[in-house]
C-alpha cells in the first residue's frame, strides 16, 4: 500500500474515473480503487468523483462513510483491525487490545505519530475458530496472546 499523506496523483484518479464512468452503479469500485492511491479518500477526491459522475458530493460522502473499510481521513501505513464480536471478546480480545495500545501508544481510531500504524475495531472476521483474531491490512492473525501480538507488530 502506498504511503499516507503523499500528494494525490490525479492522473491515476482520472484513469479510474475514465474506466468506470460509463457503467452506472460503479461508485463503490471507484471509491475502492481511488482509496488505493493514497490510503484514504480526501474531500478533493470525493468532489472529483462527484463531479465526474454527476451526483452530489453529499451522496458520495454518505457512501464513503457508510463502509468501514473506506477512510475519509489519512490512516497509517498499516491498519490493525481488532475483531470486536462476541467470540473474540470471550477469548480475550480485550487483552490483545490492551497490549497493542501499550506497545504503540495509541487508542482505537488513532494513528501513531510516525504514520506507521492505525488501530481500529472491526466486526466479525469469520475467524471465530481461532479467536481472538485481528487483521493488519490484508493479512489475518488468529490465536492471539499478548506475546504473540507484540511479536507480530515488531515484524512490521
Amino acid at each position: 500500500m502506498a504511503k499516507a499523506n503523499c500528494p494525490l496523483p490525479t492522473s491515476n484518479l482520472s484513469e479510474i474515473l475514465d474506466k468506470y464512468k460509463q457503467s452506472p452503479g460503479s461508485l463503490l469500485e471507484i471509491l475502492r480503487e481511488a482509496q488505493a492511491i493514497n490510503g484514504y479518500l480526501s474531500r478533493e477526491v470525493l468532489q472529483l468523483i462527484a463531479e465526474e459522475l454527476g451526483i452530489p458530493e453529499s451522496k458520495v460522502y454518505g457512501v464513503a462513510t457508510f463502509y468501514s473499510l473506506f477512510k475519509t481521513t489519512p490512516t497509517g501505513q498499516y491498519i490493525i483491525r481488532i475483531c470486536e464480536s462476541a467470540p473474540c471478546h470471550i477469548r480475550g480480545a480485550q487483552d490483545v487490545l490492551a497490549t497493542i495500545e501499550k506497545t504503540l501508544g495509541i487508542k482505537p481510531g488513532e494513528t501513531t505519530p510516525d504514520g506507521k500504524f492505525s488501530l481500529e475495531f472491526t466486526s466479525c472476521l469469520g475467524l471465530c475458530g481461532v479467536a481472538p483474531a485481528m487483521m493488519i491490512n490484508d493479512q489475518v492473525f488468529g490465536n492471539l496472546t499478548g506475546d504473540r501480538v507484540r511479536e507480530i507488530i515488531n515484524s512490521f
Partner: peptide, 20 residues
Amino acid sequence: VGAIAPANRGIKTQILPAGG
C-alpha cells in the same frame, strides 16, 4: 441541490452536509 445526505452508519448515522 443535494446539500445534505445520510452519512456514517448504525447508531452514528446522521443527515450531514458533505464532509460533515
